[in-house]
């Protein structure tokens, strides 16, 4: 059953009692919260996700709640907990939905070592996964959002999960996190897309999440074969430039963008090596989304 067909009242009730259980890509998440805005966030952005039954194995038990009764009224805050453990300091109450997204990123990155986990957006077209590793500010999420708005399948905006078992990229189709100027860029690029509530004054500035296409969520179990590894760099007024990158240099750049390369040891080395073997590698500089999309369309043919 899709979350979208639940009423807001039912979602709030589930969050407050036994927790709302959602299938998100290959992960089963149980979220508890007394914060009504969290229900809005889920209904708008996770509407296409399946609600799973009470017997299903849960990968991550997550809770979002005010840290104390006092903090419900005086400068209200929200705390994120995973299995009863509090990995972060509390945030202002109105950042609860963003905290859920960041916290879930942390859960996946810290516990899913059956995958090589790359800090990268990944999209698919014609059976080919295009991987865009990037540090904050590189423009990977903006590029990812523009491609997804142009019909590409979203596998992930934040984390590329490469299976150690078969080398394929497994999806976690979740909302795309856009920040600051990127929000308006994508709003004008694709006026029909659905955004959640904007969250201002976070440590990353203003953050707004874009709903993933329903089709990408429905294909949440279907992996894709890595084909292109592209290191994007947004530079104002720069010409669109896709430059081949040597595989050895791409290896080092990719390893730097992995969350668990060092944890995996030789497995990590082999996984990165196999990914590099199966991908064409590039550095990519851009300022025009339209030109970037035209170029990647050609590359995907």
């Amino acid at each position: 059953m899709k979350l979208a067909i639940r009423t807001k009242k039912a979602v709030i009730q589930a969050l407050k009692t036994r927790g709302l259980r959602l299938k998100i890509g290959g992960f089963n998440v149980c979220l508890s919260s007394s914060i009504p805005e969290v229900a809005d966030h889920l209904l708008v952005l996770y509407g296409a996700s399946d609600v799973i039954n009470d017997e299903a194995f849960i990968d991550f038990y997550i809770s979002l709640a005010p840290p104390s009764k006092l903090r419900r009224y005086f400068r209200p805050q929200v705390n994120f907990s995973y299995d009863g453990y509090f990995p972060f300091k509390p945030l202002p109450y109105d950042q609860a939905s963003a905290m859920f997204e960041w916290g879930l990123n942390w859960c996946i990155a810290s516990h899913s070592h059956q995958y090589l986990i790359i800090h990268a957006a990944v999209v698919e077209r014609n059976g080919q996964a295009f991987i865009f590793p990037g540090t904050p500010g590189s423009g990977k999420s903006t590029l990812c959002a523009a491609l997804v708005c142009s019909g590409w399948r979203l596998l992930s905006d934040e984390m590329t999960l490469v299976s150690l078992a078969d080398g394929l990229v497994y999806p976690v189709p979740r909302p795309i996190s856009l920040k600051n100027r990127s929000i308006d860029v994508i709003r004008s690029f694709s006026p029909d897309v659905i955004f959640g509530e904007i969250v201002n004054d976070t440590s990353k500035g203003s953050v707004n999440h874009l709903r993933p296409p329903d089709r990408s969520v429905e294909l949440g179990k279907m992996p894709a074969k890595p084909a292109k590894l592209i290191f994007p760099k947004y530079e104002q007024k720069s010409a669109t430039n896709l430059a081949p990158l040597s595989k050895s240099r791409a290896f080092l750049k990719l390893a730097e963008n992995c969350f668990n390369y060092n944890i995996l040891g030789v497995e990590g080395f082999n996984s990165v090596g196999d990914l590099i073997d199966s991908s064409d590698c590039y550095d990519f500089k851009y300022s025009s989304l339209d030109e970037a999309i035209t170029l990647f369309m050609e590359l995907a043919h």
């Binding site: 040597s246 595989k247 050895s248 240099r249 290896f251 390893a255 080395f269 090596g273 590099i276």
Partner: peptide, 20 residues
């Protein structure tokens, strides 16, 4: 070790370091 054209990447399990 992994080799591509005239470059290689070498990983030392003991130090955990990767060298180009």
């Amino acid at each position: 070790c992994r080799f591509w054209e005239d470059e290689s990447v070498v990983y030392n399990q003991v130090s955990g370091e990767t060298h180009l």
